[in-house]
Design a protein around this nucleic acid. Structure first.
Lengths: 232, 232
DNA sequence: TGCATTTTACTTGTCGACAAGAATTGACTG
DNA sequence: CAGTCAATTCTTGTCGACAAGTAAAATGCA
């Protein structure tokens, strides 16, 4: 059996989604580094399919800004724009506030169940010091809150921002050797309580505080002193 | 010459953009009605190209929510969700406020020039009672303000909202026989003045007022009495 | 005639191949 | 030896064709 590699007998429309999800995860987990080129034939060989579904997945990724494609030239993983991080922080703060506020107003019991489920996973990941799981479950936690707010316009923008933040956080924890902060767990619990109590103003303040906390950590990481200590 | 139809000798990567722009305009101008099916081969014949670039354009349109594609079944023009219009109005109001505020802070002289250019076209369209040109230039006017705010996250969401609004406004003016309101021209002038003066609070109020005005018109249209007057 | 089932027609998803454009290599000239 | 230009290679954009899956038409049966 020379060709024992996986030919998983996929269903008709599933190839594109598989490639899309896989590439997306690899980009957000920084396994594919920002700026690195993406070769279509290489991906086609790797996934065992033609270039057509690969291209479709890349077009979708480009639509979300995760890859950039120059005409007639190789497409590449989007760079992180460190010079304009303030626009990212600004939008992130607003979306944290708005989605949490709306969740307080429009949430239903099933939403709280989903939110608590992601929070449990988040707490477990923090305890296990599992950076990747912590980042992913943190994203899912806030995505579930946005869903509970029931405004697809905000949800779609927030998901994009959370994904971009996932790349930044990954960078952060790679550099700090994956020491995970416990205080986020308690902040999440406070947010859940405020949503449950339908306290809109409190949700607004907690959302802003949570965003500020994350921004402070990232900025602290970015402003850290790169020089190695020297013994004189 | 039986085949005298246009074979415009297009350049290599331009076919997709051409199809994308054309379909997008037709969708937003309601020439393609919401819910109507889109046939790939039909489009391929119409544009004189293969199905591949057509499909790529459709994938991009689907990424922006302008068309919906069911697996293994025909893709169709997205429906307007009248039942959840309040989420649209909510997001629109917030984006009007935020983008106008940011424009007051971050605009440069070139931005004002662009904004005034679109405003001039808008005023001319209103005077000429040209509904299509009025809707398009109104969109361009606010898009230019968002650009001056220099936050791509807000800009991208706002563009999506403005496009959705373009469909709603088109519906509105089709129904009201294209009588165009003059007061929008003055409101636009006020917004320009506030941005130029870098008055953030005033921009916030004017943005909200402008959004409320549009929402009121649309709601008035939606709540109108459909019954024909009957002479007894 | 009404309903279930098979058959047909049609649309989309995928493939392999070819052509156009760009980057790199190599040759040629000053 | 450096710089310019031509040739080659490599990647992407486009094409036509086939396969899979779905909806509609046609057939069979009660």
């Amino acid at each position: 059996m020379p060709d024992s590699a996986a030919l998983p007998e996929r269903r008709r429309g599933s190839g594109v989604r598989m490639v899309y999800d896989q590439l997306r995860d690899e980009i957000l987990d920084l396994e594919l580094l920002p700026g690195s080129p993406i070769d279509e034939v290489q991906l086609a060989e790797r996934f065992g399919m033609s270039r057509t579904p690969i291209r479709e997945a890349l077009v979708r990724l480009a639509g979300e800004g995760l890859v950039e494609t120059l005409p007639n030239r190789s497409t590449m993983v989007s760079n992180i724009d460190f010079l304009n991080l303030h626009t990212f922080f600004d939008a992130m703060t607003l979306m944290y506030r708005v989605t949490t506020r709306l969740a307080a107003t429009y949430h239903r019991p099933a939403d709280l169940k989903t939110i608590r489920k992601h929070q449990a996973r988040f707490a477990k990941a923090v305890e296990a010091q599992d950076a990747l799981a912590m980042i992913a479950s943190n994203r899912d936690f806030h995505a579930a809150i946005a869903e509970a707010g029931r405004n697809p316009y905000y949800t779609s923008l927030f998901l994009r921002i959370l994904d971009e933040g996932r790349r930044l956080l990954r960078l952060y924890y790679q550099s700090f050797d994956d020491r995970l902060p416990q205080e986020f767990v308690q902040e999440h619990e406070d947010i859940i309580a405020a949503i449950t109590a339908r306290d809109i103003d409190l949700c607004d303040r907690l959302g802003k505080g949570h965003a500020d906390q994350i921004i402070r950590q990232i900025q602290h990481f970015l402003a850290r002193d790169e020089r190695q200590p020297v013994t004189l």
